[in-house]
Amino acid sequence: MIKKTLCFSSPAYLSLGNAQLVIRLPEVENNETLPQRMKKEAERTIPIEDIGVVMLDNRRITVTSGVLEALLENNCAVITCDQKGMPVGLLLPLCGNTTQNERFRLQLDASLPLRKQLWQQTVKQKILNQERVLHANTDKNTGCMRAWANDVRSGDADNLEGRAAAYYWKNLFAGHPGFVRDRDGAPPNHLLNYGYAILRAVIARSLVGSGLLPTLGIHHHNRYNAYCLADDVMEPYRPYVDQLVIDIIRRNEDISVLTKELKMQLLIIPMLDVVVNGKRSPLMIAAQQTTASLVKCFSGEIRRVSYPEM
């Protein structure tokens, strides 16, 4: 079943009732000009089991501990935002799989050659997906990117990921003079940042559901990063966010400010169509297939991760 992505950008009171998320809006309840019938109708309920991601994008949101417990029991990712509306926190369950200890040990015992092979597959598919996005949206020659993808060696010893990224970002947003991909850079960097934060939460949720440690990466190993594995696995999925950002830019004349409307357009990321192993499914389902295949790679059952192909 496709899980819902909920975003709360206005003051709200979130509580639990009969295994349902109960949503009440203080601005409606405290409005004395509205009849009681309308106030009652403004209260909404959503089954907890139907929710996959919750975005808390307002500093006046109240969440009961019962809601958080129920969401985490159902492997829901809860994202908190700062005063600028950018994601800054991610809450995930401590135990997301019945054989979690066994899978932790498989992940911890993964050999260096295996991790390098997995990173080779990750980089190759990322470059191929970037090539498809660049080819579909520009008139630039992308033959070099296909060549780089085919030349990726174990562990990406030649850093072809970096070479491909430099070419990709130089040409993808040519309509934005001087664009440089930088977290704190000029638009559309803010759209990419927001989209990647949603994607990261989806991937981290899938990793926990598959019984893996999101912290222990196959390549990323920053000591201050709690989601190294999520950052590894999300790499081939990033071009889907890039394509969505391109589509948003084409539909909107002004993207200088990350408005509520633009955020709503980015919140469809978990539902984007993705092809894995020749089968089309929503990105959230595809992420689960990817992380499940990664577990099998760690256990030696298979040799390839099921990454998306654009």
Rank of each mutant, 00 (worst) to 15 (best):
K3Q: 04
K4Q: 02
K4A: 08
T5V: 15
S9D: 03
S10Y: 10
Y13E: 06
L14N: 02
L16P: 02
L16D: 04
P26I: 02
T33P: 05
T33G: 06
L34I: 06
R37P: 01
M38F: 08
K40F: 03
A42R: 13
T45K: 15
I48K: 14
D50V: 15
V53A: 06
L56T: 08
D57Q: 14
N58D: 09
N58L: 00
N58V: 03
I61S: 07
T64M: 11
N75F: 12
V78C: 13
Q83H: 13
K84Y: 11
G89K: 09
P93S: 04
G96D: 02
N97A: 08
T98Q: 13
T98K: 13
T99Q: 14
Q100G: 09
A110P: 09
A110W: 00
L118F: 00
L118H: 00
W119L: 02
W119T: 00
W119P: 01
Q120T: 02
K126N: 02
L128I: 00
L134G: 05
H135Q: 15
A136Q: 15
A136Y: 11
K140Q: 14
M145K: 07
N150I: 12
N150F: 14
D151F: 07
D151N: 12
D156A: 09
D156T: 05
D156N: 07
D158N: 14
N159E: 06
A164S: 12
A165V: 08
Y167A: 15
K170N: 11
G175C: 08
H176S: 12
A186V: 09
N189W: 12
N189V: 07
L192E: 01
Y194Q: 01
G195C: 05
G195Q: 00
Y196R: 04
Y196I: 02
R200Y: 14
S206Y: 00
L207W: 05
V208W: 11
G211T: 03
L213C: 07
L213T: 11
P214E: 04
L216S: 14
I218G: 00
H219N: 14
H219V: 09
H221S: 09
H221L: 14
R223F: 03
N225Y: 07
D232F: 02
V233T: 05
M234W: 06
R238F: 04
P239Q: 03
D242L: 13
D242E: 13
L244E: 14
V245M: 13
R251D: 12
R251G: 07
N252D: 11
N252K: 07
D254G: 08
D254S: 15
L258M: 13
L258R: 12
L262R: 04
M264R: 14
M264F: 15
M271I: 10
D273M: 05
V274F: 02
G278K: 03
R280F: 03
M284V: 08
M284R: 12
I285T: 15
A287S: 02
S293P: 13
L294I: 00
K296F: 05
C297I: 01
R303K: 15
R303G: 03
R304D: 11
V305W: 01
V305Q: 00
S306N: 06
